[in-house]
Design a protein around this nucleic acid. Structure first.
Lengths: 206, 206
DNA sequence: CACTGGTTTGTACTTCCAGTACAACATACG
DNA sequence: CGTATGTTGTACTGGAAGTACAAACCAGTG
């Protein structure tokens, strides 16, 4: 698959809302052509069909997330702090691109069946978390758990579902503020849990 | 939509694996007809098309989950204990029906776009958790959090993603044992969090 | 038994849409 | 200029969803 010119790429984003709204099935290639201004024949010249349109849009989203999280993870802090930063980063990107998130949720099945996307999904969402959890055990900032894989998956689920839902529900005026707010709640859950217990003074995350 | 006779219903389950494998798009009505032994004309006599097949299968799964969780939630224990029971119940049903879970994940988008299913999804997965979190604050077994909605959503995500992944990855020989194991990990995360901190003796859940 | 109303099913048909073919045109670059 | 590479309109093909319908089938019920 050729990599398509920047101009077309930017036009293609015009299809995101459409696909988010109706799903890829409910969206005719002709609709996409009309919405983006790219004629059908041109779309087919560059892309191998409908799936490729989705694949292009989503891999872009996933790259953005993987990138932002990658940066957040690089700092010299302990793993716990970096995990918090990663959560904010991930949610930030998601809330900034609600349509792409909706499209992702809506066509998750297709996405996971497109091999490249499935990998990108893992790389963007799951792997950084898994890594940070392991780092945290190593540097003492996170607790050792009996079944790290399952826990990493749950943490991944907690973050991602909250983020996707927030993105799906309503595009907001100030995505990054929302991301910070939301990630505070999630971090609190992930780090401190919900059980009632006396908390020490230095325990407070923010 | 008429409610279809028991015999046909049971035959329809023969389509679950097919749909799980290829997604609804990748499955022709004729394939479903062949796999279930129900001729196409008969399918159309009872159901309003492809979507209705998925809708039937999934609403059945969701009813099972909602039922099992509903029972778990009814006990006289405190909310925290009931939440733990609900997690086991939910995971138990999910791991017992891996094909339906795969179908659910694969066609999540379609599912959320089918109004009845979207409701059933909420009722099965999210609402019980939301309720238990509120109960827990009331009876003192769970901590009060600033943003209960977001936390409920994250908890829901943690449980559901872990469960779906486990169900999708591999049908197991002993689903209920797996469910117990998995739910122990998840409960530990949800209740105690991952932060390192000295834990008091009476803190230990099991 | 015969009549009646709902099921069941085969077959043929219509419709819609993804994807293809191709020719005409544009643009760029040597 | 000429060759290569992109752009686009138009017409076509193929496949699958869903429909139409008639023939058969199976209760019950009088």
């Amino acid at each position: 698959m050729r990599k398509l010119p920047a101009k077309l790429a930017s036009q293609l984003y015009g299809a995101a809302e459409l696909i988010a709204e109706r799903g890829l099935d409910g969206t005719k290639i002709e609709d996409i052509a009309e919405a983006t201004g790219i004629p059908k024949a041109t779309i087919y010249y560059h892309l191998d069909g409908k799936n490729a349109v989705l694949e292009f849009l989503l891999s872009d989203l996933l790259d953005m997330i993987a990138g932002a999280v990658g940066v957040a993870v690089l700092s010299a802090e302990d793993a716990r702090t970096r995990l918090e930063a990663a959560v904010v980063a991930q949610l930030g990107v998601m809330l900034e691109h609600p349509f792409l998130c909706r499209a992702l949720v809506g066509d998750l099945g297709r996405a996971t069946r497109l091999p490249e996307l499935a990998l990108a999904l893992r790389a963007a969402f799951y792997e950084p978390i898994e890594q940070l959890l392991a780092d945290g055990v190593a540097d003492g900032s996170l607790r050792q758990v009996p079944n790290p894989g399952a826990v990493a998956l749950s943490v991944f689920g907690a973050i991602t579902v909250a983020g996707l839902t927030a993105a799906v529900e309503g595009p907001s005026d100030d995505p990054s503020a929302d991301a910070v707010r939301l990630s505070a709640s999630i971090s609190e859950l992930i780090f401190d849990g919900l059980a009632t217990r006396p908390r020490r003074a230095d325990d407070k995350p923010q």
